[in-house]
Write a protein that binds this DNA or RNA. Structure first.
Lengths: 333, 333
DNA sequence: CTGAAAGCGCTTACAG
DNA sequence: CTGAAAGCGCTTACAG
């Protein structure tokens, strides 16, 4: 069933039906309501493809993430989709599985769909593919791609604030020997967090002993391993900051197995603020990475850029991190 | 840039360009390669909307879930999207937030996009909206909607097997007093799990003492509360089964706070097999709900139904549950 | 306030 | 093997 059939049954032209559907004010109320009745009666649903072909905009946004199974992403996706829905925009969703090559395919698929904008929320990125999309005038927004900030709108997570707060919190509790569970040296996000830790420590007038930073994999097991190393140090730290929550969970398990109580014997702070933080005992003190704020920022950047006649200004959009104090930190003994 | 421009530069008609793009065999190789060169050179990407409008199929599947933040869904979405990608199908993603009304809107949006099929992976469902979609011949597949199995293809999670295995596992370890942490009486999935537990118990020749089934909310706190109740019983159970993993985590925390060791003093079994199960100490023994199998089943049902000329047969597609033995269960003292 | 008609970018039956 | 032309279902400038 199409607009023709509605037009025929309502005894008007398709132009009039179209106007009614789109809420044009220049239709006589009587005509409009007659048409509307037929539309409802037939349960007529306009064809988006045809609409787009004529009108130019698809009302479709692309959302590309690395890995939906990473607990970082669901809240971001949820928020992005909800905002889109509120604006009558649908979301085509793909994931790259941390594979640069797949990003290229994902972008290609988005191009074919003529999406009105693409949020590329992956850590790994393929510049050539992005440039190609840009050439087609499709709005883009990236996440944490500092090197590309001159070429694309970028959402920049500011680690500084959260780490400053965390270190100040520990200092206020009397801690001076603070260890850090770092991620792999190859991962830029991990390196940036480590740098934020070191500089926060210096700003607090504390020393970042080299023996108190241990690199490992960014999962629970990595946290267990790194914690074992730290606990074996001659003078072990009284508090630990971690590159992410999963490592912090591992650190707590390792401490408990070593008969240390958290936070009585040692304080632990994570990073991310996963939902899990409030499911474990003790509830994890952590630096929150505001995933919903990232989604909101990405969405509003795309929405603005997709507005006809908008001129895209390439800018950095900073998102602050923030300490959430819970039960895994306490005064030094 | 469109097919016209490619045609002009290649000195052929748009029909020929179209044939080349679509890999038609009836183009002279020399012509084909000349056209292909232009296509590559211009980085020409065909317009999906125009294609669809002509060809009828959108190569778009709709995926509707309740809540992406529920750890049940990410793996399902991931798998569904990966399979779709492999078949050149894109996925429009929406969520209902457990709201029936929103399902209606989600379906409506899918209809407007003329998706080739819709996977409705929500627990709550609005029959009238589904019937409307069905009338438009759009293939649908539902999850755990037993009452609608006569009207729609349905993926049916078979709780029996997993619960049988769990009870047998505990019986083999010497347990005879087995408690159950149940969900709210209003939730049909919770009720079905409880029924599966009771019947497994009977099949094992054990009694399901009424005093050993406690209902609560299906989160960590609910597990804590329910466990407190069970531990206060005159003769407390030596093993616990739980409606989901989150409650089981709560149960373990409650046990540990009561100075009981898991599994030395009490065994605990969850349900779902969330990634978290292997992040906690002890690693949780649980009944796995195979989320990827559900995604695969949903995808293949839609793919088959979306094939032109396919006749849809409405059938139940059973997915088995399965016990995964880890460290939270042990012999009775 | 309403309609006739062009056209969005493709594909495909038809003709050659 | 290739092209001219119709048509998928809409919207919109234009005319009245």
């Amino acid at each position: 069933m199409d607009i023709q059939e509605v037009a025929r049954l309502a005894n008007v032209s398709t132009a009039t039906v179209s106007r009614v559907i789109n809420g044009s004010p220049k239709v006589r109320p009587a005509t409009a309501s007659r048409v509307q009745r037929i539309v409802d009666q037939l349960n007529y649903v306009p064809n988006t493809s045809a609409r787009y072909l004529r009108a130019g905009r698809t009302k479709l946004f692309g959302l590309i993430v690395s890995d939906i199974k990473n607990p970082f992403f669901p809240e971001l996706i949820d928020r992005f989709e909800a905002l889109s829905g509120n604006h009558g925009i649908d979301v085509v969703f793909t994931h790259t599985n941390y594979d640069r090559k797949r990003l290229e395919q994902c972008l290609r698929r988005m191009e074919e769909r003529n999406v009105d904008g693409i949020a590329v929320m992956t850590s790994e990125v393929e510049v050539s593919a992005l440039e190609r999309v840009k050439k087609r005038k499709t709005p883009l927004v990236l996440l944490n791609q500092i090197e590309l900030e001159k070429s694309f709108p970028n959402i920049h997570v500011d680690y500084t604030i959260g780490f400053e707060q965390a270190v100040q919190h520990l200092k206020a509790l009397g801690h001076t020997r603070i260890g850090f569970l770092s991620g792999p040296p190859t991962l830029s996000s991990a390196q940036r967090r480590c740098a934020a830790f070191v500089s926060a420590l210096e700003n607090a007038g504390l020393r970042a002993g080299e023996d108190l930073v241990v690199a490992s994999t960014m999962d629970v097991d990595g946290g267990v391993v790194a914690m074992h190393v730290l606990l074996a140090r001659a003078r072990r730290p009284t508090a630990i900051l971690s590159t992410n929550d999963l490592m912090a969970f591992g650190a707590i398990q390792a401490a408990q197995r070593a008969r240390l109580s958290v936070p009585r014997d040692i304080s632990v702070i994570g990073f991310d603020d996963l939902p899990m933080c409030r499911m474990l005992t003790p509830h994890l003190t952590t630096i929150a990475l505001p995933r919903e704020a990232i989604a909101e920022s990405a969405f509003s950047i795309l929405l603005k850029a997709a507005t006809p006649g908008a001129k895209v200004k390439i800018a950095r959009h900073s998102i602050a991190t923030e300490l959430r104090v819970r039960d895994s930190t306490g005064p030094v003994k």
